[in-house]
Design a binder for these strands. Structure first.
Lengths: 329, 329
DNA sequence: AACAGAGTTTATAACGTTATAAATTTTCGT
DNA sequence: ACGAAAATTTATAACGTTATAAACTCTGTT
């Protein structure tokens, strides 16, 4: 026999107060006597009262839901280190829940944003892989819908973001390769519609300019290319003889594809080539041959994104929620 | 200026019908004249009417939410191949949304289940890593709360599951090692409270018994051991000289740790040792040296889990939702 | 023309919460 | 002890939906 779920009414009956009073008391409203608030809190605790989300949502219009839009190219470390875990951690105990809305391959990225805002399925939105004039950002700004992006844009109106310093990553990665004696260095970039394409490119080119080494930026492949395509590309790749060639790769799977392609050609890491990788998991700490890598803490990004969206929902300023995360060796 | 969200009332006014009639018409109730149903559907479409989830949830008691509980040890391939992506795919277009509830390290796994069922935050639950007499399963069965597990249990009352055939995986992996001439084979198992510990062990031991090779099952490490611990263990590991030793490893990160530990000792894959790995991502297709691996399609598990929970919610039988997924080379 | 019965539509209430405004009680200065 | 103001509590209505039961409108039979 299941005892019915306690509601405000139950608590009101137990305390002899009106439903309204109980509601206010539990919201800790200063209008209610401190004594009463304590009494109500105690009664609610005893009864195991938990507010009904659906009713609250219907009445207040707030969903208490944050939605994360994930795209299929997102590389994820184990769940414990993932952005989802970080976000969950940030939302824990706040009453906010996390829903995942996938970006399906081949469907416009604006679709989930439309869907969520039109039907008001969340109070805040988080998404990744921003473009220069990201239409999702534009739409949400027009609507005044709270959001934080993982990545920046070139749009005039500022917005909240938590971004990794890809410029610095690429610079340091390139410098490392140059310091190791590479006379020619290359970089695998994401598709050029993304803002982090530019950031990576700038950082890379800064190091190139400073040092005067030769640079190669392949155009027929990118970070999202399937591993086989990357493997083929690097199988045909002409290395400058005599000095090692360096490659910056800001993606683990891609780096693995490149490494396997080059070692399959019997090229030797350290003498024929060097690789500088962005790592988000423990993969490149365990990989042999070991390559130089710089860490991006994705769990931390998730936490940052979570804190930012919560801050915005509490009325925080956009300008206080623009973070650029430093690369860690 | 934002036009207010259309509700049943808006549609009722437009069609000149009562709110109740519109509601019934949109639910396609046979009580409403076919002609009227069409007219209402058309009007709703024109207005861009979408039912309010909060109101439906409050009135019907159904949340239209499926919750996936993820634990920190879950290994995830890229998002496109993940269980979450598979689940999303299965739920797409059904009106069900997916929420993620994490199992935090060090907190009882029953906590999120309690939280979700007590507050009725979902209509169905999906979770992984089942134990023999899993208390989550017991609780949900007592409550009559719909759920599907990724993994089986030893409990008397049958329940819905979608499981990978770990017995067969371990058998085939072990057979492969034996066929390659290993005279001694070992296996890295998950913590022994999980049911798939047994499945893996049985499959492994079946191959051992059939062939009469020596077997080793380390007890001071398991699949959840941190990579450094695994590396240390395999750094001290005494190999039988003369013939290669085989190791079955049902986890990618663990396999990587083992591989690096052994190659750091200058042991040679193929002569000193063989590794047979379970792969869920493209990691071990790209890894060098390349090892034998057997595929577990996690996206497919997600889809299967999704279809099963939907089927249960439509009144489907538990017995029709017990699937064991075959390993693929 | 009356009426049963099917076919169709509608009014009312309720799910659990909170905003608004009104009502009650207490406090305090005179 | 009185009244005004402050402090506290309460009644009412509403968010958008659907279940229940009642009301209306046809049809075809007598």
């Amino acid at each position: 026999m299941v005892r019915k779920k306690p509601t405000l009414k139950t608590v009101a009956e137990k305390t002899g107060l009106a439903v309204t009073t109980v509601s206010r008391a539990l919201l800790d409203s200063p209008q209610i006597a401190l004594e009463t608030r304590k009494r109500v809190a105690e009664a609610a605790r005893e009864l195991g009262y938990i507010p009904d989300r659906a009713a609250q949502r219907l009445r207040t219009g707030r969903t208490k839901v944050i939605s994360l839009i994930l795209d299929p190219h997102n590389e994820i470390p184990d769940f414990g280190r993932s952005m989802v875990a970080g976000l969950s951690y940030a939302l824990k105990g706040t009453g906010y829940h996390l829903t995942i809305t996938p970006d399906f391959e081949g469907e416009p990225t604006i679709d989930p944003v439309n869907y969520i805002t039109r039907n008001h399925l969340a109070d805040g939105l988080i998404f990744t892989r921003t473009e220069y004039f990201d239409e999702r950002v534009k739409l949400l700004q027009e609507l005044g819908f709270p959001f934080v992006t993982h990545g920046r844009t070139e749009l005039a109106t500022p917005h909240a973001y938590w971004d990794y310093d890809n410029e610095e990553f690429a610079y340091r990665a390139a410098r490392h390769l140059i310091d190791r004696g590479c006379q020619e260095i290359g970089i695998v970039l994401p598709p050029d519609r993304f803002t982090f394409y530019q950031h990576l490119r700038y950082g890379f080119m800064r190091a190139v300019r400073e040092s005067g080494v030769a640079s190669v930026i392949p155009v027929d492949i990118d970070l999202d290319s399937p591993p086989e395509v990357l493997r083929e590309h690097f199988a045909d790749w002409q290395l400058k003889p005599g000095t090692p060639t360096g490659i910056v790769c800001p993606g683990e799977t891609s780096a693995l594809a490149i490494s396997s392609s080059l070692t399959d050609r019997r090229l030797t890491p350290g003498t024929d080539f060097h690789l500088a990788v962005k790592r988000t998991s423990s993969l490149f700490e365990l990989h042999r041959p070991s390559y130089f890598s710089i860490y991006e803490n994705i769990f931390e990004s998730g936490r940052g994104l979570g804190h930012s969206i919560l801050n915005l929902l509490e009325g925080g300023e956009v300008s206080n929620n623009q973070t650029i995360q430093a690369p860690v060796m």
